[in-house]
């Protein structure tokens, strides 16, 4: 197959970006989307041109490194799929695709399709953990955790931190990302001690980093490669109000 690409090229954070046209030749349907881009880049390198910069690492959909917009959809058209797991059999010969980086105030473009997502780390830094040092943990079975709670916590914990939710949101909100971690901890007994402080600190940090507010459009849930449901955001809001009302700190 042959695919026509329109790719955002931007040399550095301060440089002016623009779309550049490329043609991907001899694309096989079994290739992943990123392997198709590898082939385009190989040709650019042989011609002595700067290849298209894009992030990727594990290429099996778990590290959360890859991600860009494929014709306006974060990670492309397949539901529940990162762009590294999107395969070219999904597309037809001769299709035209536009590739753009995540666009959000809190995610600066570093080069081409690569953005700075360090704001996510800072949100976790604010409270996305239990404050336990190594050494004194009680036996793993000392605290029982119901299977339902544990399964639900795992559903939320599955977030890979790729940033698709922010890119898809018209407000560039990171509510889905933030709420997934808050939910995981709120659902588990281990998370109870710091439950109130955690939600307030993380939500405040989220706002300070320049992410927008959630207005319940559900775009984030639609593109999330791990299909994290928007009910996490409802839980976060509930947790937040509860903390404001009942916290004694």
């Amino acid at each position: 197959m042959r695919i026509f690409l329109k790719v955002w090229r931007q040399a550095s954070p301060d440089a002016q970006g623009r779309f550049v046209d490329y043609t991907a030749e001899d694309v096989s349907p079994d290739m992943s989307f990123l392997e198709m881009l590898d082939v385009v880049n190989e040709r650019l390198i042989m011609q002595g041109e700067d290849p298209i910069a894009f992030d990727s690492d594990c290429r099996e959909g778990i590290c959360g490194t890859c991600g860009f917009m494929v014709s306006g959809i974060a990670h492309g058209p397949d539901p529940g799929t990162t762009v590294c797991q999107l395969h070219m059999r999904r597309f037809k010969d001769g299709m035209r695709l536009t590739l753009e980086p995540w666009r959000a105030r809190a995610f600066q473009v570093l080069k081409d399709l690569v953005v700075d997502r360090s704001a996510f780390d800072r949100i976790i830094q604010a409270g996305g953990y239990t404050s336990v040092n190594v050494g004194g943990a009680p036996d793993g079975n000392a605290v029982l955790v119901g299977k339902t709670a544990s399964d639900k916590a795992m559903d939320s914990a599955a977030c890979i931190g790729c940033g698709a939710c922010v890119a898809a949101c018209k407000n560039a909100s990171a509510a889905l990302f933030t709420s997934a971690k808050i939910s995981q901890m709120a659902l588990l007994p281990q998370g109870q001690v710091e439950r109130f402080q955690r939600v307030v600190k993380m939500v405040d940090r989220h706002d300070e980093e320049g992410f927008g507010s959630c207005s319940n459009e559900g775009e984030c849930e639609a593109v999330c490669p791990k299909e994290i449901p928007i009910t996490n955001i409802a839980r976060m809001n509930r947790e937040y109000f509860r903390a404001l009302l009942f916290s004694r700190d």
């Binding site: 953990y129 793993g140 588990l188 281990q190």
Partner: peptide, 22 residues
């Protein structure tokens, strides 16, 4: 054995039996 205890304390959502055990 200490690793499992530490990870449980961190809130790692290990698979559980219906009775709540690991």
């Amino acid at each position: 054995v200490n690793i499992i205890d530490q990870c449980v304390a961190q809130g790692v959502p290990f698979a559980r039996e219906y009775g709540g055990m690991l």
